[in-house]
């Protein structure tokens, strides 16, 4: 391709440390879709855990270095609705005291996309060939749904896969109970919320519970594995990349 779309990965700390296979899936998938992918290797975490717990000066320091790190990226793609929300919606406010940096943050925000939104809105929802097969159901991550107002892109992508049947999850828009440090501060409340989510997922008869956020995945797969469920929690990138993701 003459002028490939270029995208930098903001892979997120959870994917980097716990779910590298999601990052690998994303790279292979994007490359198959003709995207030129790079990975600024000094990235750490977007700072969302600091921000949500009220440590805003600290979050601003993380934001400052992330904004600089991605200053020259054409697009930034994030496999997580919450981290994309952080960059798009919170960075500009955190850095507003420095007008130049604030403006840079605004710019970064407008070039940053959650993965499904990137594929649909920037790449124009191309056909995706995957060898993934099965019945899946989709969980709306709170920040992607209510923070970025996105419920359709992931569903649209899943529906168009030939070997995949998408069944709606009752209460799909209800929180899984993760909430970052919430799940550590109030673990039993978090687990009680999760219980209903998993019961609903199992009732759909789906093989896979798909989400677009590694936080929700950590929570939901942790619960599924503990109860010995046959349902697996997977990231959208893994479904779209198929066996390419290992």
């Amino acid at each position: 391709m003459a002028n490939p779309v270029r995208a930098s990965l903001l892979v997120t700390c959870l994917v980097d440390l716990f779910y590298p296979e999601v990052g690998v899936a994303m790279v292979r998938l994007l490359r198959r879709l003709g995207v030129s992918v790079d990975f600024p290797s000094n990235q750490t975490c977007c700072g969302l855990p600091l921000f949500n717990s009220g440590y805003h000066q600290e979050a601003a320091r993380v934001a400052r270095r992330t904004v600089r790190l991605f200053a020259h990226s054409e697009h930034v793609v994030v496999p997580s609705g919450s981290c994309a929300w952080m960059v798009k919606k919170e960075y500009p406010g955190l850095l507003k005291d420095d007008p130049a940096l604030g403006a840079q943050a605004e710019g970064l925000g407008s070039r940053t996309y959650e993965l499904s939104q990137f594929i649909v809105k920037v790449l124009g929802a191309p056909d995706i060939a995957t060898d993934f097969r099965g019945r899946v159901t989709y969980h709306d991550s709170c920040h992607l749904l209510r923070g970025l107002g996105e419920s359709q892109s992931p569903r649209q992508l899943l529906r168009r896969l030939p070997g995949v049947e998408l069944v709606e999850l009752p209460g799909a828009d209800q929180c899984c109970g993760f909430g970052g440090s919430f799940s550590v501060r109030l673990p039993d409340v978090s687990a009680a919320i999760l219980k209903k989510k998993l019961e609903n997922a199992e009732a759909t008869g789906a093989d896979c519970l798909v989400a677009c956020d590694a936080g929700c995945l950590m929570q939901m797969s942790g619960g599924l594995s503990r109860k010995g469920s046959r349902v697996r929690a997977v990231h959208l990138a893994q479904v779209l990349a198929g066996s390419d993701s290992r």
Binding site: V11, V15, D16, L17, F18, Y19, P20, E21, G23, V24, V27, F39, S41, P187, D188, S190, A191, L194, M218, Q219, S221, G222, G223, S225, R226
Partner: peptide
């Protein structure tokens, strides 16, 4: 209440 995934043997940045 639930399992936690272990830190991966090789992080994404190592696989990159």
């Amino acid at each position: 209440h639930r399992d936690l995934p272990p830190v991966a043997e090789r992080s994404f940045r190592e696989r990159w």
